[in-house]
């Protein structure tokens, strides 16, 4: 799937509307990080990754791991928009019996959620292991892993960062949604992790620092990662928590808060939803 920049912008907008409606309907969830990662999901699934909803288990496909599992509303949305589930199912988020668990569950949706996530820091190790397996098997798919910047306070992630450079896993791309916010406040005040670019470079990675809401820059960074043949790449994507909903932007409280009915209506209006908007329209109505 190779959407153009205008289509990707529409897709990101749709992801944001879905995220607000899904979390509002669920009564709980994590809107802030999900809204901030809309362009990252759009660029990955709408342009960068080789994948097809019609051939989910194609052994040559690119693979994706959401390590910061709490922002899964955005992931479920993009998956719906590119054909992995009926958009109407998005309304089941966090409900009993749903495949769309509060944190991504391999048990509930093994074809798509390759590894459950939620406990932070776990995703990159799995991505590395899959890249090693691919090398042994001769499969050439690339492996993507998305983490939050606060998540980089977990020790295991640095173990995995060392492993990826030690084994020269050039097929691994780590995307850091760098919004400088976590539950207890600014990452820099809770326990600072900057400068990330210098850290990744000094750990033997190829670091690319970009605006995480600029899909063209994201596509460019992913192309750089593809061209890199000896080192893993870290795409440090500067993002804004709550992006697109002015009253949520840059506020840590929206990490895990549910908007009220009034807030939901205001957010949807700001995100460009038509008055009376109630459904999850299919992709064709979004990608003009």
């Amino acid at each position: 799937m190779k959407l153009d920049l205008e289509q990707l912008a529409h897709l990101a907008g749709q992801i944001r509307r879905d995220v607000v409606r899904m979390i509002s309907a669920a009564g709980s969830g994590h809107p802030g990080g999900a809204l901030g990662a809309a362009e990252i999901f759009a660029a990955l699934y709408g342009h960068e990754m080789h994948h097809s909803a019609d051939n989910i288990t194609d052994p040559g496909r690119d693979r994706f791991f959401l390590s910061n599992g709490h922002i899964c509303a955005a992931w479920y949305s993009v998956l719906a928009r590119v054909g992995y589930l009926e958009p109407a199912e998005l309304g089941s988020l966090r409900k009993m019996g749903s495949r769309l668990q509060g944190h991504p569950s391999r048990e509930k949706w093994p074809e798509v959620v390759e590894s459950s996530s939620g406990p932070l820091g776990q995703g990159l190790s799995v991505a590395n292991g899959l890249a090693l397996a691919n090398t042994l098997s001769g499969d050439r798919g690339r492996v993507y892993c998305l983490v939050g910047d606060g998540e980089l306070q977990e020790g295991i992630i640095w173990e995995a960062i060392l492993s990826a450079s030690h084994y020269g896993l050039a097929d691994v791309t780590l995307i850091v949604s760098d919004n400088d916010l976590q539950i207890d406040g600014a990452v820099s005040s809770v326990k600072g992790i900057q400068p990330l670019g210098a850290k990744f470079n000094s750990f033997g990675w190829h670091a690319v620092e970009i605006d995480g809401h600029d899909t063209e820059a994201l596509i460019g960074a992913f192309a750089e990662a593809r061209a890199e043949k000896s080192r893993p790449t870290a795409v440090i994507a500067e993002t804004v928590m709550g992006r697109g909903v002015s009253f949520m932007e840059n506020l840590a409280k929206w990490h895990g808060a549910c908007p009220s009915a009034d807030e939901t209506a205001a957010a949807l209006e700001e995100l460009g939803a038509a008055p009376g908007y109630t459904d999850y329209p299919p992709l064709q109505e979004v990608i003009r």
């Binding site: 590894s115 776990q122 190790s125 042994l136 499969d139 173990e159 492993s163 030690h166």
Partner: peptide, 24 residues
Amino acid sequence: RFFQMGISENDMIGTAAGLALGGK
């Protein structure tokens, strides 16, 4: 087919998980 993970038991388990996911 041998992977020395260093003194990183958590990462070793995650890496093993990825290898299993890849059919190993």
